[in-house]
Design a protein around this nucleic acid. Structure first.
Lengths: 344, 344
DNA sequence: TTTAGCACTCTCGCATCGAGAGTGCTAAAT
DNA sequence: ATTTAGCACTCTCGATGCGAGAGTGCTAAA
């Protein structure tokens, strides 16, 4: 009762492929003629009954064709789809774009989001790389205007955080430099906890700066501590399943709300190894908010140095093959770039 | 033929107010009963004919009520609406939120976008402040990993730009510091042009760094050189006029595409004084892309120090009074904050 | 100048209807 | 024991028609 016969697997795959392409319920007759199957529509019908009973297909109403269920898509992605890969010309095009882009993190992230959105014709999402357990590397304090001081903090893994702080009273650049030098000496290579519990007598300024450093290091450890890059939001509206405004609204909100993203990324992607691609189909029962969407997510980067997350969000009726390949490929490219940025 | 009688102005105002509220074409009978006018529906009808002939109203079809035309909204905003202001409790709430927020630019921008979106129930847009003609203030070069160097550039007005650069070969921190010191001495207070034409014998490293500095200063002068913050994108989908997917798509693309935003902001907002609020209704004839939207835009900041742009995008049927007040108020708050950040 | 009255127009919701697509079942064929 | 042809049945979808309701524009009276 559990397994599928080879023929059932074939029919399920064809139904899903056709539905992904046309967005129309697919009927038995249509299937045999389109793919010139050497069996009759009645046979296909019988198999469809079986697939429906097993929960892989659904029929919108008595006399429409069949439509894949969430379970059907999952089976397809896990067992039917096989390993797909992007055409090498596409890969070259993408790689070329990355070579041409500036090599600052911001441009790269923006490009990655753009490529993902464009290739998959869906909304994309990229988080800036962050280090898992940041260690102090370097601090600069630069006076700008009046009491305003720019604090630049460099962490292990190359994560850089900057912040303006307003002092209680103006302080000379010499004094600032002295403080920075002192802290650089004391904190070299320490993690946030160690810095927080640093002993010694310090004045108010030094303590303030240290506190900010610890805060920033904690924030850097947060998966959403850095920028979140999005692109292709308008693509989701192009899909017929988002014609219903409420559905589209929910999808947009998912991408907009940091709190939701944080929850999502923490609970799913962090359990994924770099290199692995995770597919969430129809919310997987426990994500009410994205009941009508699918996401393809992956981590990129180098564990120990810095890692980030990227992925796309689209309708459940998504071209999983192409999307998964794209996500995997871009994740790989970004991983290489992260490694490049951190080694000589 | 050009001017409106007092009664026509009244009726136009009521039609617009009612339509903004209900999104339904408003008929003559409905108007007199809802606002208990002491004239008959026939009179209102006659005036409506006049208003329609003058181009301020439109009728979707023979037997529906009237709907404001773009021209009608413009007349309303310019001549009928009067100066509106937010209720002081609302103002206090907003101001309080800003006081509680962190004082780094990123948090402030994010909060501003959030407040705008929430208050106006529309999509919001905020660009980070940038200086008009940046002058060199301070440079830091910090070695991070291998050949990677973090360049932090502080410009007059407090604009800070950071960038990773990859050197041809590893360089010691001492050497980096020496280069930075040299450049700091030479470039103090100069603008991009002057730095570009700086004479003197320099080695490859120094020249590279100088070139990057000039690039960055140019980018800082660009209105979209900094981050763009958005919020409330899902709000636009809630409005009935965006039920048509293509309309919603166009609106979203406007906010997504940097190139379009750049064009838009350059050609409209830069001509506006800080403090002034600009209202674009239905694309104002020359913005095909936002034919179905309105935008309320303002500049904030302090001329000479740093300025930015903020605004909201919503349907043409927008609560202009409230939206304009909100935009003006938030722009004022941000201006104060920018000034605060730059003076002691 | 305003207003009552009225014929007219147009939309919208509702019901009806036929065509078409696709199913599920049964009985025959392989 | 499968597979398939045949067929009645079900359901959607688009077209059509119709009545109610809303709102207009015009005319003539106030």
């Amino acid at each position: 009762m559990n397994g599928l016969t080879e023929r059932q697997r074939l029919i399920l795959a064809l139904v899903i492929r056709d539905y992904i392409e046309t967005a129309q319920p697919v009927g038995s007759g249509h299937l045999v003629s389109k793919f010139t199957l050497d069996m009759s529509s009645a046979t296909v019908r019988n198999e469809m009954v079986a697939l429906t009973e097993k929960g892989y297909l659904r029929q919108p109403h008595t006399s429409a064709g069949r439509v894949p269920s969430e379970e059907g898509y999952r089976y397809f992605v896990r067992q039917l789809m096989g390993q797909t890969d992007l055409p090498s010309t596409t890969k070259h095009t993408i790689a070329h774009q990355f070579l041409q882009a500036g090599q600052d993190v911001d441009s790269l992230m923006r490009l990655a989001a753009s490529v993902l959105a464009h290739q998959s014709q869906a909304a994309s999402l990229v988080t800036a790389p962050h280090v898992e357990q940041a260690r102090f590397k370097h601090l600069e304090l630069i006076g700008t205007y009046g009491r305003q001081v720019l604090m630049v903090l460099v962490l292990s893994g190359g994560d850089v955080r900057q912040q303006m702080l307003a002092l209680a009273e103006p302080v000379s650049q010499d004094r600032l430099s002295a403080v920075a030098t002192m802290i650089n000496d004391q904190c070299q290579g320490l993690d946030a906890e160690r810095i927080a519990s640093l002993p010694g007598q310090m004045d108010a300024l030094e303590q303030d700066v240290l506190r900010l450093i610890v805060d920033d290091m904690h924030r850097s450890g947060n998966i959403l501590g850095g920028e979140v890059y999005r692109d292709g939001l308008s693509h989701v509206l192009a899909e017929p399943e988002f014609a219903e405004v409420e559905v589209a609204r929910k999808a947009l909100r998912i991408l907009e709300e940091r709190s939701f993203l944080e929850d999502l990324l923490t609970r799913t992607v962090l359990t994924t190894n770099v290199g692995g691609v995770q597919v969430l189909i129809g919310g997987e029962d426990n994500w009410e908010e994205l009941r009508d969407c699918s996401m393809v997510l992956a981590r990129y980067g180098a564990p120990g140095l810095a890692t980030g997350t990227l992925g796309v969000l689209g309708p459940i009726r998504m071209a999983y093959g192409r999307t998964i390949s794209t996500v995997r490929f871009v994740a790989g490219l970004l991983s290489d770039l992260v490694v490049d940025l951190h080694t000589e």
